[in-house]
């Protein structure tokens, strides 16, 4: 299990790095358009999921429950990643092809991470296999005008960046619990 978690956290690490690069790439060319003036346009579609928000809380969560949170978050991004991927192709942004290929890469990592965790959670028992459903209800269209599209795209990416950081953090805590006998890793 230590080995599987090690590989899983390498993927989640990569996913978070990609989402960070994506948000930076968006902002380099178009500094957050009115995003400052606007209230955060909405809450992330995953915000109803109760997750720990500091170390003390996180370290109290059981292995199964951490695994369940990770899998719920991954599942919640399957549909929005399709929307991001489709929108990226025609994004009114000079870096759209680089953005588009990074999103595809993210999708691939997300898919193989989810597959790996299906196997892993199967070994951990029913509580780890339970997931919460977090449907994305924002519609498949990001809008008509350039500013709206860029804002919505940027907002989704900022949610993805946060959620991929949660996924990565929880998996790395799980990894260290699993490799307690190899302290050189943690």
């Amino acid at each position: 299990i230590g080995d599987l978690l090690d590989r899983a956290s390498q993927r989640s690490d990569k996913m978070h790095s990609l989402s960070t690069q994506l948000t930076q790439e968006m902002d380099t060319h178009f500094p957050p358009y009115g995003r400052m003036q606007m209230q955060r346009p909405a809450e992330c579609h995953t915000s109803t999921l109760q997750t720990p928000n500091d170390k003390e809380q996180a370290l109290q969560v059981s292995n199964s429950d951490l695994m369940s949170l990770v899998r719920s978050l991954l599942q919640a991004w399957v549909d929005p990643l399709v929307i991001l991927s489709n929108s990226a192709i025609t994004l009114p942004h000079p870096a759209k092809s680089s953005i588009s290929s990074k999103i595809q890469e993210l999708q691939e990592h997300s898919k193989s991470l989810a597959d790996g965790l299906d196997i892993l959670s199967g070994k951990m028992g029913p509580a780890a296999q339970a997931t919460s459903s977090l449907p994305y209800t924002g519609g498949t269209d990001l809008g008509q005008d350039r500013v709206t599209i860029l804002n919505k795209f940027g907002f989704l990416l900022s949610c993805l960046r946060r959620d991929s950081h949660k996924i990565d953090s929880f998996l790395k805590v799980l990894r260290c619990r699993a490799v307690k006998l190899q302290p050189e890793l943690c």
Binding site: K55, L59, K172, R175, C176, R177
Partner: peptide
């Protein structure tokens, strides 16, 4: 930095 628990790597 609490690297032991995996909270920070």
């Amino acid at each position: 930095a609490d690297t032991r628990s995996g909270w920070i790597t």
